[in-house]
Design a protein around this nucleic acid. Structure first.
Lengths: 110, 110
DNA sequence: CACACTGTACGACGAGGATCGAACACATGG
DNA sequence: CCATGTGTTCGATCCTCGTCGTACAGTGTG
């Protein structure tokens, strides 16, 4: 009987393979979201909770950005107690959009 | 003496090397603009005038999109009589954003 | 010159999205 | 149980951007 927590029900992940290029590019075209992705790329999977990112926005806005990244198939999230841990879906996203993530994350500026 | 035509004065090209990743991604995150780029990629340089593209927008809007692509260092334009010819700046843009253009243009859908 | 054609400039409009504050849900530790 | 910490949701606001119609500027042709 499942017993998914009410919390987890808000966690809808998009399959990167079914994400449109439009959605992917829109998700990547925001500096706050790119900073989240860079941060994730620089750390091990499941080691960064949403609140541990140093972002120039309130937590409400940050929550919005995490949702957008989830909908674009760029990140995966998992609840660990009161915290929500994150993982960059590098391999899956690369399979759907070869070279795109590397082109964005490997860029020096921005 | 120069004698640049008044027409050509409206042609300000951005150097791809000085374009920010933000600007590049914003330019790429529009379906009409991507369709222009795909069209250019499929034809020889300087063979396509602005009016020869089959776009789902009016010419005023199309003109705006060409200006955005120019500002992002993605295309180069040259006046040929009454027409304005276009060229995809593939090499220069690739040097500034390695892999980005390929990732976008080589994608099947969109 | 008059006319057609190509493309830009300008002003206006509407939709979408980034942002915030406040309220809420859940987990955890005293 | 109460307080604290984490994160989401909701409504409101603001502002950018895509879009259009119209007017305009050059070019070329009859």
């Amino acid at each position: 009987m499942a017993a998914e927590s009410a919390r987890a029900r808000t966690l809808t992940h998009a399959d990167p393979a079914r994400v449109s290029l439009q959605t992917a590019l829109e998700a990547l075209a925001d500096p706050v979201r790119r900073s989240i992705l860079r941060d994730l790329a620089a750390h091990d999977d499941w080691t960064r909770a949403c609140g541990t990112f140093d972002l120039p926005v309130t937590k409400a806005t940050a929550s919005h950005h995490f949702a957008v990244l989830r909908s674009a198939g760029l990140i995966e999230q998992r609840d660990e107690g009161a915290r929500r841990l994150n993982r960059l879906r590098r391999a899956e996203f690369d399979a759907a959009f070869p070279g795109l993530l590397a082109a964005v994350l490997d860029h020096a500026e921005d």
